[in-house]
Design a protein around this nucleic acid. Structure first.
Lengths: 202, 202
DNA sequence: CCGACTATGGTTAGACG
DNA sequence: GCGTCTAACCATAGTCG
């Protein structure tokens, strides 16, 4: 007989890059499957078209598409051409297409930012409530983990914004080519681990 | 007073296209947000690149990309075929004037963002330390007020970024009509085999 | 390494303001 | 129509075979 707990079940994890290589691979596979499944359900439910492209840490490409990856991507890129095909040169069309694409990405980032902001607002309330008084009644451990997630998420969004600026700059420096000459390196040296603010004297 | 059950909670739904138009819109928004969030977590966790493009039932395009939609899509297309971008030069001088202006604003905002980020990083340390344990020893009142200020400041900067997007859009709306009112709501008979791809266990 | 299992965290359908 | 709440469904981290 066993009164011992067999599994701790799912535990909360930090939303930071996994260092352990094998565990990273497992999580990549699991979550990629989950993401594609979500996308599939999404398409079925709403009857909309969607495409996902992901690159594994080993740079292998995986994709999902309804009705197909190419169809959706082409539609995404052609949407711009259709909008501007009344104007003159091919170069102009291409240029403006890029602009519209940038605009789309802005909107995408805005949505993500809204989410981050919402979450962080919630967190701010919590922090404030904590500071006010009843912090000894607050389930601090859980909540503050969420806080960190919020902050982490918000910072990532900030980075993306900055990167997008680089893209825009590149667009206009070189009139046509959209190639990513911007670094695109996610250089967030997150120093989220730091108890050095006040040492634990227990 | 009510002893009655207020909500039935989440109920299982058929994975078929929703007919009710307004409910479809709600579900589209909710699930798109969830999908993008999942993708964001996925990227953070695995450090991999990913892009999502979706078209709403009204054919509006939404996208998510890490580090950017274009980067990922280009990388994806380059894997299959090495198509070369025909580079040309466009003589849109007056256009560039506006462009430079936008770029300047971007740089100005970036500086502010860097500052906001720096301050927020500091705050993150505080929050982290607080979450760890000895929060009851922290001079919470002071620190968290600063936290809130940092957050507020950061969010204001983000909002400015978003506003700048509108400027970018506005710059080009005189050259090209931006809003697509085509919206020929077409009902696709979605025959997407969603869950066949991933066997539901059990 | 991969699949199965389980407990738990996370997502969201439904109801309400 | 959007935000919020809640309960229930769903995804998945940790674990074992």
């Amino acid at each position: 007989m066993s009164t011992k707990k067999l599994s701790k079940g799912r535990q909360k994890i930090d939303m930071v890059k996994i260092k352990n290589e094998s565990y990273l691979q497992v999580t990549f596979s699991k979550r990629r499957a989950g993401l594609f499944k979500k996308a599939s359900e999404f398409c079925s439910l709403t009857g909309s078209e969607a495409a996902i492209v992901v690159f594994s840490p080993g740079d292998k490409a995986y994709s999902f598409g309804c009705p197909g990856v190419s169809e959706v991507i082409e539609k995404y890129e052609n949407e711009t051409s259709h909008l501007v095909n009344s104007s003159s040169t091919v170069e102009e069309v291409h240029h403006r297409a890029n602009i519209i694409r940038v605009n789309n990405e802005f909107e995408a980032l805005q949505a993500q930012l809204d989410d981050a902001k919402k979450r962080s607002d919630k967190l701010a309330e919590i922090v404030e409530a904590t500071s006010k008084r009843y912090w000894w009644q607050v389930p601090i451990n859980e909540l503050n983990i969420e806080q960190l997630e919020c902050l982490k998420f918000a910072y990532d969004e900030l980075d993306k914004k900055v990167q997008l600026r680089a893209i825009v700059a590149g667009l206009f420096t070189d009139s046509i080519s959209f190639d990513n000459q911007n670094a695109s390196g996610f250089g967030r040296a997150n120093g989220l681990q730091s108890d050095k603010f006040f040492n634990n004297d227990e």
